[in-house]
Nucleic acid binder design. Structure first.
Lengths: 256, 256
DNA sequence: ACCTGAACACCGTTCAAGT
DNA sequence: ACCTGAACACCGTTCAAGT
């Protein structure tokens, strides 16, 4: 606790850890667009250039922040999990043998939903992970472990490869929303209702879809993040499809 | 053709159309990160502020650029298309009746692959579409038409809604790559090989996957865009899954 | 070893003025 | 009606200097 001449207190000497933690907290609170080297420095009671002794540049700062979030994956208790049965449990599914090897789908599912919980705690993280030019060590470690989960379940490297591509950003428990929550209306409720009515005239199919889906309200949904049900629906659709191909002994050479 | 005093020629008077076209060409050539109001103005032989008479701000400029690209969807000939049979034509598929109503899957597929061709011509467009706070009129029109294609095929509004969410950014014929093409190596071939060897040590599962998949080389693949085969694999996995649910009469109320 | 001050080369955008 | 000049409030980052 060093008392500064200007009255502010600097708790401890600056170090890389403190810089990264402050950046994460800053982005959590004010959004990633408000995070600049200058604003972060101000928050730490320090001149902008002081940060460059601990991170090489802003890109390295963002990489460090991302890896803090990724390190949180799997740290939380895995309660309230749905069973590993997909939404597609028709008669053609048969009864899968339950065992270590057979439960790759449940294991993948749990891992991805754990990633989702971590990313929902830091709403800026998904966009930063996606927009980075090169993956962080933490991201590579996570992906490697997820691929390992498929492979331990007996899936071929070939099928696993395509499954990972098909999952895409969903491996992070995250998907880009197609339409923002409140479509374009920045006014109050009355203006919004008028805009929705106009939208219905011009885009009747969108209006029909938007009206039908109230989405689930028992889930905390941050802006920019999709609802839990939509996420699990798509995840299960993909995992069930991959499982079907796995049982058929599919290879990429099979393509027509 | 007005000859300027400094020797540059300004072809015609500035107008919104010319500003937007120049911005698209500029981004095609130099990338979206090189596009600033200032650099665009310079390219048009004009002072930055002159642009603000034709677009309200940079956000509106980007919106106009996006809608130029979206207007290109469907303009190209639809040749070389794969049939609408997915990769999953197992015995449980049966023989689907072929008709207007039954071909929703092929129609959706063609529309999305047409969008993909347009976005591959403008590699910046996908990221701009995704990062925008509110959808452009062109984007709403495209989504409305795509939803209409599902609905005309007899799918319920409920299932269509979830199918659109599951497709996510894939409706634009685009998915974010999980790993950049050349993972992190900015040196020459020798340095890259060393980096790959190190990657194999630390991330064995990633290395196995990366080694197996040479991807297709008969396709022009831009940076940041996924290969054609991976795209169609995932697209078919999702559409086949949706088709299966449709045949089962699935509703979102069915969730366990 | 760690932090600072001043500066550089950029941004998007506003305002008042020119023709 | 359309374009300009100067300015404002920002960026990330370099360099030489302080302690």
């Amino acid at each position: 606790m060093a008392q500064q001449t200007d009255g502010t207190t600097r708790r401890t000497a600056l170090n890389r850890e403190r810089v990264l933690r402050a950046a994460v907290a800053h982005a959590d609170r004010s959004g990633i667009e408000a995070l600049s080297m200058r604003s972060l420095a101000q928050e730490l009671g320090v001149v902008p250039m002081a940060l460059y002794k601990h991170v090489a540049n802003k890109d390295e700062l963002l990489a460090g922040m991302v890896d803090i979030v990724i390190a949180e994956i799997g740290e939380t208790a895995e309660t309230g999990q749905k069973g590993e049965a997909g939404q597609n449990g028709g008669p053609d599914e048969g009864s899968a043998p339950t065992g270590d090897r057979a439960d790759w789908k449940g294991a993948v599912r749990r891992r991805i939903l754990s990633a989702r919980r971590a990313l929902l705690r830091h709403l800026w993280a998904a966009r930063v992970i996606e927009s980075r030019a090169s993956p962080t060590p933490g991201a590579l470690g996570y992906l490697d472990a997820l691929i390992g989960t498929f492979r331990s379940g007996g899936l071929s490297a070939d099928l696993t490869h395509h499954a990972m591509h098909a999952l895409g950003s969903r491996v992070w428990g995250f998907t880009q929303e197609l339409l923002p929550a409140a479509p374009d209306t920045d006014g109050e409720a009355r203006a919004r209702a008028a805009a929705l009515a106009e939208l219905a005239l011009r885009y009747p199919h969108i209006a029909e879809i938007a009206a039908g889906g109230t989405h689930d309200d028992d889930t905390v949904v941050g802006r920019g993040c999709d609802d839990q049900f939509e996420f699990e629906f798509a995840l299960d659709l993909l995992l069930d499809g991959v499982e079907r191909l796995h049982r058929q002994g599919w290879t990429s050479a099979d393509r027509a």
